Computed example of a mutant assay.
Amino acid sequence: MRVPFTKMHGLGNDFIVLDGRNATLPPIGSAVVAALSDRHTGIGCDQLIVLETSTRADFAMRIFNADGGEVEACGNASRAVALLHGAEAMVETSGGIIHVEPVGHGARIDMGTPHFEWDQIPLAYAMDTLAMPVGWDGLDQPSAVNVGNPHVIFFTDNCDAVPLENLGPQIEHDALFPERINVNVATVNDRNSIRLRVWERGAGITRACGTGACATAIAAMRRGMVEREVEVTLPGGTLTIEWDEHGHIIMTGPATESFRGTFDWGDYA
């Protein structure tokens, strides 16, 4: 069975998109996801995105990290899907329903409202999520935010100097985070801009993470470090994050279609 795909990226965070809205796809298993995601023997991507029909929204989006695990949300993929769909839409994800709207060479995404309670992150036990009394090898007092998926955010004088390739997997798999965690290290440049690096749960260090940018901006806003609209610059580029008067997170940024092709499902199953 040959299956068509679209390869896309948002600021270098790249995706294989399979459209199952008008065609039946075989069952998506973790082994197939991992095989397709492999950059040496597969198509290669950070996440596999599967579009499906929905009874609650215009369509549904499922998100699988490169290790095969399914996750709740992906901001960069949401912009890519908005560009691919080509029109304003409500999209069902396992993290909630989001509103997407193509804008120029990218999209504007209403990511919904953030969650801060310890059991909404979730954490293994109760604590203040604004400045958590925990630390790992020089990174301490993080914030935690759930923006459809869980994030922990560390503010540091120089996020580029943090050995994220070592600390990222250690923090991701810490027992404090029963569903694992996305790890963000950020430096606030001024009231309107933040630099950010992200270790993404199940994917590792990525050039960009839309939900990480949202979570980091919200954490900085809660701490009074930045204004209610801020530019977040990641290695792959810059996103604009706003926390609007209704409490919703609005993310605006680019997305790009790289190429299209087909593959034989049996080669990866």
Rank of each mutant, 00 (worst) to 15 (best):
E227C: 09
N76K: 06
P122D: 03
A87E: 13
N158W: 05
V134W: 06
V198H: 04
C74R: 02
W136F: 15
G202S: 10
T6A: 05
A60G: 15
A34V: 09
M8L: 15
E172I: 07
T41F: 07
L25K: 13
S37A: 15
A34C: 10
S143E: 05
A57L: 07
H40Q: 14
L51R: 06
L36N: 05
L164W: 01
G29A: 09
M132V: 11
R260C: 13
T256Q: 14
M251A: 12
F177N: 03
T262C: 06
P114M: 09
T238W: 02
R56N: 12
D137F: 06
A215R: 01
I181M: 09
E257N: 12
T238Q: 02
G135D: 08
I205K: 13
D160V: 11
E231N: 13
H99M: 03
M61W: 06
I63N: 00
V226Q: 07
H40K: 15
C209D: 04
Q47C: 04
A219L: 11
D38Y: 05
G104Y: 03
R108A: 06
E72Y: 08
A35Q: 08
P163V: 08
P142R: 04
I249F: 02
E88W: 08
A161V: 10
A161C: 07
L36H: 01
N182K: 11
G237V: 03
R39S: 11
H40I: 07
I16Q: 00
N189W: 00
P102K: 11
D14S: 04
D67I: 10
Q141M: 13
A60V: 07
G168H: 04
H85S: 13
A107V: 13
F177K: 08
E92R: 12
E72N: 14
G210S: 10
F263R: 09
G75A: 10
C45V: 06
G168M: 00
L25H: 09
P26A: 08
L11W: 04
N184E: 15
I171T: 11
M111L: 12
L48Y: 00
G42N: 06
I63Y: 02
D244V: 14
P142S: 11
T93W: 00
S258V: 15
W265D: 03
P27C: 05
V162E: 02
A255D: 09
N76P: 03
N158M: 05
L123D: 01
N13E: 05
N13A: 05
E172C: 09
F177H: 06
G96T: 06
R222A: 07
R21W: 08
F15C: 05
V81N: 00
I250L: 12
V71S: 01
G75L: 04
P114K: 07
F5C: 05
R195D: 04
D190H: 07
F259P: 09
I250P: 01
A60S: 15
D46L: 09
L83N: 08
S143Y: 01
E227W: 03
D244R: 14
A87T: 15
R222Q: 15
G20A: 12
M90F: 06
T156S: 05
R195G: 03
E101L: 13
F15A: 01
E92C: 08
F155V: 07
F177P: 01
S54V: 01
F59C: 05
